[in-house]
Amino acid sequence: MGIEEKLPSGILLTSVEKLAGYARKVSVWPATFGLACCAMELISTGGPRHDLARFGMERASNTPRQADLMIVAGRVSQKMGPVLRQIYDQMADPKWVISMGVCASSGGMFNNYAIVQGVDHIVPVDIYLPGCPPRPEMLLDAIVKLHDKIQNMKLGANRVAEIEELEQARLRRLPLAQGSGYLGIGAPGPTLLGAGPARPDATHAELGQSEPGEQS
């Protein structure tokens, strides 16, 4: 474009947001909250085969004061909940949370008195990673998606506006059981579950037309 062609070589133009995002994403320090089986896969991700050091993340900061990312790896019991919240509060902004594994995301297979059914009851989660336990490659995929999110995070007044917009979108979204339109899942119906893989780009209306008996 205009000005970049006229600059001498060796100069890059960027925006403050992109620079800050880049700096943040290449040196995320995880506060590994390794709890259970997922912690073993987390440690394996730091191992030589699936190397976390290539993302600058091998320096796991054991003190939350210096950590950026809390990877909740494993099932969170009722006794551990307050500890989780305290560690999250001790982290300094900007901070992100990956809930690794199904136990952290939703309580997993342990739907009982002892396990918190999803750490999003306690801390706000940025990336949910399913799996029991998720492979190291899956964790790396989640981390890469998080890096994407970090890179594109806005600053200052733009950030305030971004937060407002995300919140409004979340508040408007209906729960799955009433048809959120997410992943093309409409209102429940007997043919829906046998309809094969949902089309991700199908809107609620399209799917509604193809079902014979739509319930409200």
Binding site: Q78, N112, Y113, A114, L176, A177
Partner: peptide
């Protein structure tokens, strides 16, 4: 095992399992 101030003794047969209903893909 349970927190210090927990009420009840969980593995007794008259103590409920304590699960919650789960939403998945439009069904509960």
């Amino acid at each position: 095992e349970m927190p210090d101030d927990w009420k009840g003794h969980p593995q007794r047969k008259d103590y409920p399992l304590g699960g919650i209903p789960v939403e998945y893909r439009g069904a509960t």
